[in-house]
Design a protein around this nucleic acid. Structure first.
Lengths: 335, 335
DNA sequence: CTGAAAGCGCTTACAG
DNA sequence: CTGAAAGCGCTTACAG
């Protein structure tokens, strides 16, 4: 593998000039620059990121910390962010932590990122104050998607409003007994998004003069199996709900399936609405509140790039719009 | 941020000893090791990967090159691989290239990976001979998932056998006119998996004495929109098929939806079978040939780790089993 | 516009 | 068992 020294020799200049020419820096003559570029190309020269980082203090890498990468929302965000970062010359270090609390701690303490990245993108994980400080100290500027965090740039939807929109749709249809499928408070994933969507459910009910009975407040863990189990419990209630609002499409689709499996018609016997507009939502005829995913990943990446380019730039908190998409899983209650 | 020098001072030893102690190397007294470890912990010391890599020649990073990370198969593989690599102390550099041919070229020429990683994991992308050599030269040992490549370790399913199994199911049911939804030859993604599944479709038909008519050989691009469009074309045929074999569940689910949209019953009027056992397959009652995903990611990561630990170890080609899962989208043809 | 030199933070023979 | 020293491949003031 060729080093900067090989290029310098081939071009007949010093390594300092090679470095400057390759970085497009001003004080290099056009002729020299051309010779360096040609030599670098024909030698397949690529600077060692480790050596460059050591010398410059910049790693040109971004850490992406997420609980999962194999879930609709996260994978879409990561994909979009990766593209934006790569085209800006940054590498993306992926940390897909699962639900392991100790790995989460390691990430937020900064031990995973220190000296490794110039900035970090956090997805769907909610750090506390101490973790915020530790992560910022270790990882540079941070952008977060899925919630707002003071001092960090963020991009998210208005989870509370999205939930209310879903609920208002159900209530307008005439439903009075509406179940909820959300996260579990003990879950690593139980961030503000889960909490806000639950609050939207509760408040919508109250505003309509309906009680938000605890038995209607179920847990689905934001997964398909969790959605199935939660829906089964709702249906087993003495007085089951006539409609269910699930905090994610994965849970909503699982809920609709569970109801049909139990011999109920959807939406005839029970209506279901989700949040996301998952790629599969249309294929399930699922009524849902759509949120843009790739957009959030791309925006978060841009925010990070901005902060990297100008450390004095203030953090920006972005809220992207959602939209109710009415399809075939919601209808007025029977009778 | 503390450096090795800070730790050395705090522990009252040289930096060489700190390095040895932290790497668990033999010739360090227990007492010294303890002191070093304590100092490192209390200083939150983490070695700079860049500096360590420069000195040792190992980056402790693995590059993962995939066309997408936001598709069921790829995201599952990446998630599993990430966990295996992280727990072995490796960072994972993600390159999610999309369908951009120039990015693909950059990756396979090695320009993206050179001096950056100790090994690479390739997902679902098929390099030619020259690309194989270039990538190996630039990126160290390579493991690939989704196809076999001479000289590299690989893990995959038997795509041809999986396709035949799906087809045999349809043929045993009595179908004689069976459409295929596969990839497009011009697609970056058109690797051996797509080709073998198509061959399985064709050969199954021939073995049964049925013609594999070109008009039944449709393209779905391995996506939901592609599956919809391909199915629409199949249904618009003068003599539409009574069953469709889709090379992925995403296309299969889209196909079933399209048929129902067109007023047909599935499986009454048309049967559909896929490959994958996507998380949503059960919720769609989709008959499919299941392949393990996380397993393939974990195995590929292990293979890479093995090759890294012992460069003389010969490459291993693994084929993981698949299984036909009969659900509700297949039935005998009408009449 | 260009080069010589220092230095980034480690690891690893080489001595002892 | 431990340390001094070289060196990994770059970038960046500092001179000129």
């Amino acid at each position: 593998m060729s080093t900067i020294r090989d290029v310098a020799e081939a071009a007949g200049v010093s390594i300092a000039t090679v470095s400057r020419a390759l970085h497009g820096q001003p004080r290099v003559s056009e002729a020299t620059r051309r010779r360096v570029l040609d030599a670098a190309t024909s030698l397949h020269y690529v600077a060692s990121p480790g050596a460059a980082g050591l010398a410059s203090g910049r790693t040109m890498a971004i850490g992406v910390v997420a609980p999962f990468v194999n879930r609709w929302f996260f994978s879409g965000v990561v994909h979009a962010a990766e593209e934006a970062l790569r085209s800006a010359g940054y590498d993306l270090l992926l940390y897909s932590l699962g639900t392991d609390a100790s790995e989460r701690r390691r990430a937020f303490s900064g031990d995973l990122l220190r000296k490794r990245v110039d900035g970090v993108l956090v997805l769907g994980l909610q750090p506390d104050r101490a973790e915020q400080d530790a992560l910022s100290a270790a990882g540079g500027p941070v952008a977060i998607v899925g919630m707002a965090v003071p001092g960090w740039s963020s991009v998210r939807i208005d989870d509370y409003a999205a939930a209310r929109r879903a609920m208002d749709h159900l209530i307008a249809l005439g439903h009075r007994r509406i179940g909820f499928l959300g996260g579990h408070p003990d879950d690593v994933l139980h961030a503000s998004a889960a909490i806000d969507r639950q609050a939207g459910w509760r408040d919508a009910l109250r505003s309509a003069g309906l009680p938000a009975e605890p038995e209607l407040d179920e847990t689905g863990g934001f997964t398909v199996p969790g959605g199935k189990a939660g829906m089964a419990r709702l249906l087993a209630l003495h007085r089951p709900p006539t409609a269910v609002f699930a905090a994610s499409d994965e849970m909503a689709i699982a809920a609709a399936w569970t109801a049909r499996r139990a011999g109920l018609r959807v939406p005839g016997d029970v209506s279901v609405v989700g949040i996301d507009d998952h790629e599969m939502a249309e294929l399930f005829e699922l009524t849902t509140v759509a949120q843009p995913v790739e957009v959030q990943g791309a925006l978060a990446a841009e925010m990070l790039l901005t902060a990297l380019a100008d450390p004095s730039a203030p953090p920006v908190q972005l809220v992207v719009p959602t939209e109710l998409v009415v399809r075939g899983t919601t209808a007025p209650p029977r009778g």
